[in-house]
Amino acid sequence: MTRSSADGSGAQGAETPSILTKAFDLLHAFNPHERVMTLSELSRASGLPKSTVHRLLARLVDLGAVEHHRSGYKIGVGLLQLGASTPAGYMRDLAMPYLANLHRWTGQTVAFAVLREFDVVYLEKLAPTDSPSSIAQVGSRLPANCTAIGKILLAHENLDDLADFLPSPMPGMTPQSVTDVATLVDQLRTARGEGVARETDEAQLGLSCVATGLVMNGFAIGAVSVGFPTGTAMPAQLESALRDTASKVVKDVEAGLAKGRGHWFPREI
């Protein structure tokens, strides 16, 4: 099918990226480490010519997706409004009081995430001020097989079919990461049976994590985890506290869906 030349793509197929693709490439150049960037930095990070970046920035500023900063450009708060309008954002809002309680009780890092394909996407993270630097930040997307929170989400997929769809080998983040599909599926079966997943040094050396899922109709719509420095003695009631937190969030989500929002979540929820 021929595409309109107005979007900047080629006449046949997708040989040339569309203007929308280029705009998203530019937006993705921003990251938690580079929150304010100059035109030249954005050009290098996105791989787009400066002239293209200049035109895109002007339009994105008009739309509120990007804002001027005295030393360059930054993501606009208008995108925060869009992100907060997702069903996942609604679930995160309901979860916040329970996540905060778990964070206060453990004194450790509490995270909340969802599964997207074979990656876990972090919606919230509450960390103590003296916690070690972590690669998992709000908005981060990490391989699910490397994280406890990702494993518990995968554990509630169809495990009989999952091995046929997972990339083999799976991506690794440390020497401890489980990249063998058969080994991972065995771990997922155990996690599903126990209701919790664990990992030690698999996403980041020196950090461990325990997670449980928010299960509705047999499907994990999200998950909560507690992360801590490897070797830290954690309370014996940690797994119970995780399950209790997840149960309370699920109860609130179910109550919200009963008010005409049942189509917001998958798997007939």
Rank of each mutant, 00 (worst) to 15 (best):
D7E: 08
G8C: 07
S9I: 05
G10Q: 04
G13K: 07
D25V: 01
D25A: 15
A29H: 08
P32W: 07
S46Y: 03
G47E: 01
H54R: 13
L57R: 03
L57N: 02
G72H: 03
Y73K: 00
I75D: 08
I75L: 15
L79T: 10
L80Y: 12
L82F: 12
A84C: 02
A88Q: 15
L94C: 05
A95V: 06
A100H: 10
N101F: 07
L102F: 06
T106G: 12
Q108L: 14
Q108T: 00
Q108E: 15
V114W: 03
E117H: 08
V121D: 04
Y122N: 01
E124P: 03
L126S: 04
P132R: 04
P132W: 00
S133A: 13
S133N: 02
R141N: 08
L142S: 04
A144Q: 05
K151E: 06
K151S: 06
L153D: 07
L154C: 13
H156D: 02
N158A: 09
L159G: 13
L166S: 02
M170I: 07
G172P: 01
M173E: 13
L184R: 06
D186F: 08
L188S: 09
T190H: 09
R198C: 10
Q204G: 05
L205Y: 00
G206T: 05
G206R: 07
C209K: 00
M216T: 09
A220T: 02
I221Q: 12
S225G: 05
S225V: 06
V226Y: 04
G227T: 12
G227C: 13
T230N: 03
P235M: 13
P235F: 11
L238F: 01
D244Q: 14
T245H: 05
S247A: 15
V250I: 11
K251E: 15
A258D: 10
A258G: 12
R261G: 01
H263E: 10
